[in-house]
Design a protein around this nucleic acid. Structure first.
Lengths: 339, 339
DNA sequence: TTGTATGCGTTATCAA
DNA sequence: TTGATAACGCATACAA
């Protein structure tokens, strides 16, 4: 019996009177083993409570059982959804999840990530938006021999390295829904510039308007930064307009709720005076009053798929599917215009 | 130059014409080394881009550079705050953060955690509430030789293994504040039973009432489960009372905001008709309208302290401090009663 | 100040 | 079907 430290493969081998390699074969379920020895070894393993040392395994196999999520995204619900999705995808495997936040504003983001990758050597990483849009970082992963999958709102890479939603189409659908309800003066609160998802969402907005033969009134397009506060400002500016919009599409839920608050502060009723649609389907959207009609972003599914791509590269199906569908969730923040 | 795999300590030793051990000394900043050899080795390291293999290090040192956060808490903002705090505490070290959610309702939670601990062998774990209150799991960590720190609302363990807030005192202060504003009929929306934090918060409520010579009216005490929905139900029940309260203290922000919504649905104005106080100081609390007066729970600080305890057991100061202060954040949801 | 030999716990090679 | 022996890449004890 070992003194006080954990039993090792040697202990098992000695007690079972076989070689280390045979024990190793049992652990790794090698097919070429007599049933008798297997049983004997398995009994010893159970007896002394042997568990293979993961660090030694990692060294010998030259691979870790760690998947890392790298992000520069401050949104809590988004992060937790991604984590849940990745863990779902990892369930049943030996892999675990590591989280690595990086500072978007830092000039040496790339060096920071390189450091992390070299120091930790995860088996694979999933890159969360918006940092997933950074090609340099994807190349870095490649150079370091680290598998990666990029999450985004468009196809950012080869199918093997991509999971994405189709934000443009989803927004087109949402805005068409507003138009079908009778809205003509529809405002847009944009996301931060420089990233893909806001661009795609704006494009979807424009496509829906164009398809209905409606002009996009630039006075009704306001900048935003995906934050609640920016939604308040944009919303306030919009409702103070002489010819104010009858509906607002905000590029995410936080801003939509900000706009809701701003409208109410100005004495407007929602949805009677202004209809509002968001994007994300965060829990918050069903918690506000009135509950928010929004686009469900399939973030958990995306993350699950990403994880599966990383750990089972032989799974052709997982590697082929890179697009996950969005859906419009109808709640109570939209009614036909009353004016 | 190595073929295509990463350079190892052997490559460095060969090129620098020293022994492996000397390279090892350079890496680990051993003081007994001639400046000349150190420089030479450092140059080679920089030249060929050598980075020590973390798995080999882990094996030789018999310790991983991984800290795990184990939780059964579904609240996104809470989780992200803890993660941020832990990462803060880990900053500058070689440690990284792994996340391990477990299913509270699962009967074999202990086995699940044991599996994780044995398979991953993290250097240490921080146990998040409410699972941190489970003594069996703390003992399990001990048995497996894994350092641990438990986060909670009271001192759950020896100082070395604890970081905690003082919920009771914080709530006492918050409710005293309501009393000082002139409120007498103060309602309480409780948290889920069976956990410590709701118990402590309720105790704080009762202490404040008692200190002011006020009776606790059981009709004004409503159960809740820390969810938005439970806040709505409780709030609704309270405002429909014939003799409704002039103020509500909810054991967390989500329920406070639920109660706010419920009150408004019943046509009441906030804070004019009902003052509301929450607990947590989530971002949400400053985003609702009116903004929510609440108790700031020092969760980031707690997590940072927990991480420091884990990775620097020699740091006497970190190990001694186990209590982090809360603070009342005054916003707009409280005014003196108008009735 | 530096080097040699050995250990850490596993898997891989190749022969038996 | 099994086993002896050598990796894997780094650290430590003990010499020199």
């Amino acid at each position: 019996m070992a003194s006080d430290s954990k039993p090792t493969i040697n202990d098992v081998a000695r007690i079972a009177e076989v070689s280390k390699k045979t024990v190793s074969r049992v652990i790794n379920k090698s097919p070429l083993l007599s049933e008798k020895t297997r049983k004997r070894v398995e009994n010893v393993i159970a007896d002394i409570g042997y568990v293979p040392n993961p660090q030694a395994r990692a060294l010998a196999l030259r691979r870790n059982f760690v998947i890392a999520a790298i992000h520069d995204n401050p949104n809590a619900q988004f992060l937790v959804n991604v984590q849940q999705g990745v863990l779902d995808g990892l369930a049943g495997s030996d892999f675990n999840l590591m989280v690595k936040p990086v500072d978007r504003k830092s000039p040496n983001i790339t060096e920071d990530i390189r450091d992390f990758l070299e120091r930790q050597r995860p088996y694979g990483v999933v890159l969360l938006p918006p940092i997933s849009e950074n090609d340099e970082i994807a190349r870095l992963c490649d150079d370091l021999g680290c598998r990666y999958v990029r999450m985004g709102s468009v196809k950012l890479d080869e199918a093997e390295h991509t999971v994405s939603s189709n934000d443009r189409e989803a927004v087109r659908e949402a805005v068409s829904y507003l138009i079908k309800k009778g809205h003509r003066r529809i405002a847009l609160i944009e996301g931060p510039s420089g990233f893909t998802s806001p661009q795609e969402r704006r494009a979807g907005f424009e496509e829906a308007m164009a398809a209905a033969g409606l002009e996009v009134d630039e006075a009704l397009v306001r900048p935003g930064s995906y934050t609640f506060e920016s939604g308040v400002s944009a919303g306030q500016a919009l409702v103070e307009l002489e010819n104010r919009p009858t509906a607002i599409f905000a590029c995410n839920d936080e801003m939509a709720i900000g706009a809701m608050i701003a409208a109410r502060r100005s004495g407007l009723l929602i949805p009677e005076d202004v209809s509002i649609v968001g994007f994300d389907d965060t829990p918050l959207s069903s918690h506000v009053w009135p509950s928010l009609t929004t686009v469900r972003w399939p973030i958990v599914d995306m993350a699950r798929t990403a994880a599966k791509k990383l750990i089972s590269p032989e799974d052709a199906e997982a590697n082929a599917t890179w697009l996950l569908p969005s859906a419009l969730i109808e709640r109570s923040s939209v009614v036909p215009p009353t004016v």
